[in-house]
Protein backbone atom coordinates (compact mmCIF):
# COMPACT_ATOMS: atom_id res chain seq x y z
CA UNK A 1 0.00 0.00 0.00
CA UNK A 2 0.96 3.60 -0.19
CA UNK A 3 2.89 5.48 2.39
CA UNK A 4 -0.23 7.32 3.44
CA UNK A 5 -2.19 4.33 4.52
CA UNK A 6 0.79 2.84 6.34
CA UNK A 7 1.15 5.91 8.48
CA UNK A 8 -2.51 5.96 9.27
CA UNK A 9 -2.40 2.31 10.23
CA UNK A 10 0.47 2.82 12.64
CA UNK A 11 -1.33 5.85 13.96
CA UNK A 12 -4.40 3.79 14.65
CA UNK A 13 -2.39 1.07 16.31
CA UNK A 14 -0.79 3.65 18.57
CA UNK A 15 -4.16 5.06 19.35
CA UNK A 16 -5.71 1.75 20.24
CA UNK A 17 -3.11 1.26 22.96
CA UNK A 18 -4.25 4.44 24.62
CA UNK A 19 -7.56 3.81 26.29
CA UNK A 20 -8.30 7.52 26.45
CA UNK A 21 -8.86 7.59 22.73
CA UNK A 22 -12.06 7.34 20.87
CA UNK A 23 -11.68 3.81 19.68
CA UNK A 24 -14.12 3.73 16.80
CA UNK A 25 -12.03 2.92 13.75
CA UNK A 26 -12.20 5.38 10.94
CA UNK A 27 -13.59 3.51 8.04
CA UNK A 28 -11.97 5.73 5.50
CA UNK A 29 -8.57 4.62 6.77
CA UNK A 30 -9.17 1.04 5.83
CA UNK A 31 -7.83 0.05 2.47
CA UNK A 32 -10.70 0.21 0.03
CA UNK A 33 -11.68 -2.36 -2.47
CA UNK A 34 -9.67 -2.34 -5.66
CA UNK A 35 -10.79 0.59 -7.69
CA UNK A 36 -13.08 -0.17 -10.59
CA UNK A 37 -13.11 3.38 -11.80
CA UNK A 38 -9.56 3.39 -13.10
CA UNK A 39 -8.28 5.36 -16.04
CA UNK A 40 -9.61 8.79 -16.95
CA UNK A 41 -11.92 9.09 -13.92
CA UNK A 42 -9.01 8.51 -11.54
CA UNK A 43 -6.87 11.00 -13.40
CA UNK A 44 -9.65 13.54 -13.17
CA UNK A 45 -9.84 13.02 -9.44
CA UNK A 46 -6.12 13.62 -9.03
CA UNK A 47 -6.39 16.72 -11.15
CA UNK A 48 -9.28 18.04 -9.06
CA UNK A 49 -7.39 17.32 -5.85
CA UNK A 50 -4.37 19.15 -7.22
CA UNK A 51 -6.54 22.14 -8.13
CA UNK A 52 -7.88 22.24 -4.58
CA UNK A 53 -4.43 22.10 -3.07
CA UNK A 54 -3.16 24.86 -5.35
CA UNK A 55 -6.12 27.04 -4.40
CA UNK A 56 -5.56 26.40 -0.71
CA UNK A 57 -1.79 26.75 -0.72
CA UNK A 58 -0.93 29.54 -3.13
CA UNK A 59 -1.72 32.55 -0.90
CA UNK A 60 0.56 31.20 1.79
CA UNK A 61 3.38 30.51 -0.67
CA UNK A 62 2.95 34.04 -2.01
CA UNK A 63 3.23 35.41 1.53
CA UNK A 64 6.50 33.56 2.06
CA UNK A 65 7.81 34.68 -1.31
CA UNK A 66 6.91 38.31 -0.64
CA UNK A 67 8.63 38.25 2.73
CA UNK A 68 11.99 37.57 1.07
CA UNK A 69 11.74 40.23 -1.63
CA UNK A 70 13.71 43.47 -1.33
CA UNK A 71 11.76 46.74 -1.42
CA UNK A 72 12.92 47.54 -4.97
CA UNK A 73 11.48 44.29 -6.28
CA UNK A 74 8.18 44.89 -4.46
CA UNK A 75 7.93 48.36 -5.94
CA UNK A 76 8.29 47.23 -9.53
CA UNK A 77 5.73 45.56 -11.77
CA UNK A 78 5.95 41.92 -12.82
CA UNK A 79 6.53 40.18 -9.50
CA UNK A 80 7.85 36.63 -9.66
CA UNK A 81 7.21 33.53 -7.52
CA UNK A 82 10.88 33.13 -6.66
CA UNK A 83 12.47 36.36 -5.39
CA UNK A 84 15.14 37.48 -7.85
CA UNK A 85 17.31 38.81 -5.09
CA UNK A 86 16.24 37.15 -1.81
CA UNK A 87 16.93 39.08 1.37
CA UNK A 88 16.30 38.87 5.10
CA UNK A 89 16.07 42.66 5.39
CA UNK A 90 12.28 42.55 5.74
CA UNK A 91 12.56 40.40 8.85
CA UNK A 92 15.04 42.79 10.46
CA UNK A 93 12.91 45.77 9.49
CA UNK A 94 9.77 44.15 10.87
CA UNK A 95 11.35 43.89 14.31
CA UNK A 96 12.58 47.49 14.07
CA UNK A 97 9.21 48.91 13.05
CA UNK A 98 6.95 47.25 15.61
CA UNK A 99 7.48 45.73 19.06
CA UNK A 100 7.08 42.21 17.71
CA UNK A 101 8.96 40.44 20.49
CA UNK A 102 6.93 42.12 23.19
CA UNK A 103 3.73 41.38 21.29
CA UNK A 104 4.77 37.73 20.92
CA UNK A 105 5.43 37.65 24.66
CA UNK A 106 1.98 39.06 25.38
CA UNK A 107 0.38 36.57 23.01
CA UNK A 108 2.30 33.72 24.63
CA UNK A 109 1.23 34.71 28.16
CA UNK A 110 -2.39 35.20 27.13
CA UNK A 111 -2.67 32.01 25.07
CA UNK A 112 -0.79 29.80 27.52
CA UNK A 113 -2.74 30.97 30.58
CA UNK A 114 -6.04 30.76 28.75
CA UNK A 115 -5.28 27.23 27.52
CA UNK A 116 -4.20 25.94 30.93
CA UNK A 117 -7.09 27.52 32.85
CA UNK A 118 -9.59 26.43 30.20
CA UNK A 119 -8.72 22.73 30.39
CA UNK A 120 -8.36 22.80 34.18
CA UNK A 121 -11.91 24.08 34.63
CA UNK A 122 -13.37 22.29 31.61
CA UNK A 123 -12.16 18.76 32.43
CA UNK A 124 -14.25 18.25 35.60
CA UNK A 125 -17.24 19.91 33.97
CA UNK A 126 -16.91 17.71 30.88
CA UNK A 127 -16.68 14.70 33.16
CA UNK A 128 -19.98 15.56 34.82
CA UNK A 129 -21.58 16.33 31.45
CA UNK A 130 -20.49 12.97 30.08
CA UNK A 131 -21.36 10.83 33.10
CA UNK A 132 -24.50 12.45 34.51
CA UNK A 133 -27.65 13.01 32.54
CA UNK A 134 -28.93 15.97 34.49
CA UNK A 135 -30.71 19.17 33.68
CA UNK A 136 -27.48 21.07 34.25
CA UNK A 137 -25.55 18.85 31.86
CA UNK A 138 -28.20 19.42 29.23
CA UNK A 139 -28.21 23.17 29.86
CA UNK A 140 -24.42 23.19 29.50
CA UNK A 141 -24.65 21.33 26.20
CA UNK A 142 -27.23 23.85 25.08
CA UNK A 143 -24.91 26.69 26.02
CA UNK A 144 -22.06 25.09 24.05
CA UNK A 145 -24.25 25.12 20.95
CA UNK A 146 -25.85 28.54 21.47
CA UNK A 147 -22.53 30.19 22.28
CA UNK A 148 -21.46 29.42 18.72
CA UNK A 149 -24.20 31.72 17.50
CA UNK A 150 -23.48 34.67 19.80
CA UNK A 151 -22.91 37.84 17.91
CA UNK A 152 -19.74 39.23 19.43
CA UNK A 153 -21.15 42.77 19.62
CA UNK A 154 -23.79 41.72 22.08
CA UNK A 155 -21.16 40.17 24.34
CA UNK A 156 -18.23 42.52 23.90
CA UNK A 157 -19.99 45.74 24.94
CA UNK A 158 -21.15 44.42 28.33
CA UNK A 159 -17.82 42.61 28.82
CA UNK A 160 -16.04 45.87 28.12
CA UNK A 161 -18.19 47.66 30.71
CA UNK A 162 -17.78 44.92 33.32
CA UNK A 163 -14.02 44.67 32.84
CA UNK A 164 -13.75 48.45 32.93
CA UNK A 165 -15.41 48.51 36.34
CA UNK A 166 -12.96 45.87 37.51
CA UNK A 167 -10.08 47.93 36.05
CA UNK A 168 -9.19 45.01 33.78
CA UNK A 169 -9.29 46.94 30.51
CA UNK A 170 -5.93 47.13 28.77
CA UNK A 171 -4.62 44.29 30.91
CA UNK A 172 -3.69 40.74 29.98
CA UNK A 173 -5.55 39.15 32.95
CA UNK A 174 -8.79 40.68 31.69
CA UNK A 175 -8.15 39.35 28.19
CA UNK A 176 -7.22 35.93 29.56
CA UNK A 177 -10.54 35.70 31.44
CA UNK A 178 -12.38 36.40 28.21
CA UNK A 179 -10.30 33.85 26.30
CA UNK A 180 -10.98 31.14 28.89
CA UNK A 181 -14.73 31.50 28.50
CA UNK A 182 -14.35 31.83 24.77
CA UNK A 183 -12.36 28.57 24.57
CA UNK A 184 -14.75 26.62 26.81
CA UNK A 185 -17.41 25.56 24.29
CA UNK A 186 -14.99 23.76 22.02
CA UNK A 187 -12.99 22.41 24.97
CA UNK A 188 -16.13 20.96 26.54
CA UNK A 189 -17.25 19.52 23.20
CA UNK A 190 -13.93 17.74 22.73
CA UNK A 191 -13.50 16.61 26.33
CA UNK A 192 -17.01 15.19 26.69
CA UNK A 193 -16.20 12.96 23.73
CA UNK A 194 -12.93 11.84 25.29
CA UNK A 195 -14.54 11.14 28.69
CA UNK A 196 -17.23 9.00 27.07
CA UNK A 197 -14.47 6.87 25.59
CA UNK A 198 -13.14 6.02 29.06
CA UNK A 199 -14.96 2.91 30.31
CA UNK A 200 -17.01 3.73 33.41
CA UNK A 201 -16.15 0.27 34.76
CA UNK A 202 -12.61 1.43 35.48
CA UNK A 203 -13.94 4.18 37.69
CA UNK A 204 -16.36 1.83 39.37
CA UNK A 205 -13.52 -0.56 40.11
CA UNK A 206 -11.58 2.26 41.77
CA UNK A 207 -14.68 3.24 43.72
CA UNK A 208 -15.14 -0.33 44.92
CA UNK A 209 -11.58 -0.20 46.17
CA UNK A 210 -12.63 2.75 48.29
CA UNK A 211 -11.30 5.68 46.30
CA UNK A 212 -13.26 8.92 46.68
CA UNK A 213 -14.75 10.52 43.62
CA UNK A 214 -12.09 13.19 43.42
CA UNK A 215 -9.43 10.57 43.93
CA UNK A 216 -10.91 8.40 41.18
CA UNK A 217 -11.04 11.36 38.86
CA UNK A 218 -7.48 12.45 39.54
CA UNK A 219 -5.76 9.09 39.55
CA UNK A 220 -7.87 7.01 37.15
CA UNK A 221 -9.77 9.18 34.70
CA UNK A 222 -7.42 12.11 34.14
CA UNK A 223 -4.35 9.98 33.27
CA UNK A 224 -6.44 8.15 30.69
CA UNK A 225 -7.69 11.46 29.35
CA UNK A 226 -4.22 13.03 29.22
CA UNK A 227 -3.71 12.87 25.44
CA UNK A 228 -7.14 14.36 24.86
CA UNK A 229 -6.55 17.05 27.46
CA UNK A 230 -3.25 18.01 25.85
CA UNK A 231 -4.84 18.21 22.40
CA UNK A 232 -7.67 20.33 23.76
CA UNK A 233 -5.23 22.65 25.53
CA UNK A 234 -3.16 23.06 22.37
CA UNK A 235 -6.27 23.86 20.39
CA UNK A 236 -7.30 26.44 22.98
CA UNK A 237 -3.78 27.87 22.75
CA UNK A 238 -4.03 28.21 18.98
CA UNK A 239 -7.44 29.90 19.08
CA UNK A 240 -6.26 32.38 21.70
CA UNK A 241 -2.98 33.01 19.85
CA UNK A 242 -4.92 33.76 16.67
CA UNK A 243 -7.73 35.78 18.26
CA UNK A 244 -8.16 39.36 17.12
CA UNK A 245 -11.50 41.00 17.95
CA UNK A 246 -11.42 40.86 21.75
CA UNK A 247 -7.77 41.86 21.81
CA UNK A 248 -8.51 44.82 19.55
CA UNK A 249 -11.27 46.09 21.83
CA UNK A 250 -9.74 45.29 25.20
CA UNK A 251 -6.06 46.23 24.73
CA UNK A 252 -5.35 49.90 24.15
CA UNK A 253 -1.63 50.58 24.47
CA UNK A 254 0.95 49.06 22.09
CA UNK A 255 3.04 47.55 24.90
CA UNK A 256 0.05 45.46 26.03
CA UNK A 257 -1.19 44.36 22.61
CA UNK A 258 -0.98 40.84 21.21
CA UNK A 259 0.55 39.82 17.89
CA UNK A 260 -2.54 39.96 15.64
CA UNK A 261 -3.31 43.50 16.81
CA UNK A 262 0.29 44.64 16.34
CA UNK A 263 0.30 43.09 12.87
CA UNK A 264 -2.49 45.42 11.80
CA UNK A 265 -0.28 48.39 12.67
CA UNK A 266 1.86 47.44 9.66
CA UNK A 267 -1.09 48.12 7.40
CA UNK A 268 -1.07 51.86 8.01
CA UNK A 269 -3.40 54.08 6.05
CA UNK A 270 -5.05 52.77 2.88
CA UNK A 271 -2.52 51.60 0.36
CA UNK A 272 0.56 52.61 2.26
CA UNK A 273 1.40 49.21 3.72
CA UNK A 274 5.07 48.34 3.75
CA UNK A 275 4.63 44.95 2.10
CA UNK A 276 7.96 43.30 2.86
CA UNK A 277 8.03 43.69 6.65
CA UNK A 278 4.28 43.07 6.75
CA UNK A 279 4.73 39.70 5.03
CA UNK A 280 7.70 38.80 7.22
CA UNK A 281 5.88 39.57 10.46
CA UNK A 282 2.72 37.79 9.33
CA UNK A 283 4.71 34.70 8.41
CA UNK A 284 6.50 34.61 11.78
CA UNK A 285 3.24 35.12 13.69
CA UNK A 286 1.69 32.10 11.93
CA UNK A 287 4.52 29.66 12.61
CA UNK A 288 3.60 28.69 16.21
CA UNK A 289 0.00 27.98 15.24
CA UNK A 290 1.05 25.93 12.23
CA UNK A 291 3.50 23.81 14.22
CA UNK A 292 1.06 23.11 17.04
CA UNK A 293 -1.76 22.47 14.62
CA UNK A 294 0.34 19.95 12.74
CA UNK A 295 0.90 18.10 16.02
CA UNK A 296 -2.75 17.88 17.06
CA UNK A 297 -4.37 17.88 13.64
CA UNK A 298 -5.33 14.19 13.58
CA UNK A 299 -6.65 14.31 17.11
CA UNK A 300 -8.81 17.37 16.44
CA UNK A 301 -10.32 15.93 13.29
CA UNK A 302 -10.70 12.62 15.16
CA UNK A 303 -12.52 14.40 17.99
CA UNK A 304 -14.84 16.12 15.55
CA UNK A 305 -15.46 12.81 13.81
CA UNK A 306 -16.32 11.14 17.11
CA UNK A 307 -18.67 13.98 18.02
CA UNK A 308 -20.40 13.81 14.67
CA UNK A 309 -20.76 10.05 14.81
CA UNK A 310 -22.30 10.22 18.28
CA UNK A 311 -24.39 13.27 17.57
Amino acid sequence: MTRTSRTSRTFRAGRANRPGRVTRPRRADRPRRASRTGGPARAGQYLALLAYLVFLAFPFLWLISTSFKPATELGSLHPTWIPKDPTLANYRQAFDEQPLLQAAGNSLVAALSAAVVAVVVATPMAYVMARHRTLLARAATGWVVVSQAFPFVLVIIPLFLVLKNLHLINSLPGLIMVYVVWALPFALWMLVGYVRAVPAELEEAAAVDGASRLRTLVSVTVPLLAPGIVATALFAFITAWNEFFFALVLLKTPEKQTLPVVLTHFLGAEGTADLGPLAAAAFLATLPSLVLFAIIQKRITGGMLAGAVKG
Partner: peptide
Protein backbone atom coordinates in the same frame (compact mmCIF):
# COMPACT_ATOMS: atom_id res chain seq x y z
CA UNK B 1 -6.26 8.18 -3.62
CA UNK B 2 -2.52 8.30 -3.24
CA UNK B 3 -1.17 11.09 -1.00
CA UNK B 4 -4.58 11.35 0.59
CA UNK B 5 -3.10 11.80 4.06
CA UNK B 6 -0.77 14.51 2.85
CA UNK B 7 -3.62 16.20 1.00
CA UNK B 8 -5.77 16.11 4.12
CA UNK B 9 -3.05 17.76 6.17
CA UNK B 10 -2.41 20.43 3.55
CA UNK B 11 -6.09 21.11 3.05
CA UNK B 12 -6.68 22.08 6.66
CA UNK B 13 -3.72 24.45 6.95
CA UNK B 14 -5.88 27.59 6.58
CA UNK B 15 -7.66 26.52 9.75
CA UNK B 16 -4.53 27.09 11.81
CA UNK B 17 -3.90 30.60 10.54
CA UNK B 18 -4.81 33.75 12.43
CA UNK B 19 -7.59 35.56 10.57
CA UNK B 20 -5.44 38.68 10.54
CA UNK B 21 -2.71 36.80 8.69
CA UNK B 22 -5.23 35.41 6.22
CA UNK B 23 -6.32 38.97 5.53
CA UNK B 24 -2.74 40.18 5.11
CA UNK B 25 -1.92 37.25 2.85
CA UNK B 26 -4.78 37.99 0.50
CA UNK B 27 -3.97 41.69 0.49
CA UNK B 28 -0.61 40.66 -0.92
Amino acid sequence: LRFRGLARSLAIIPWAMPEVVVGIMWRL
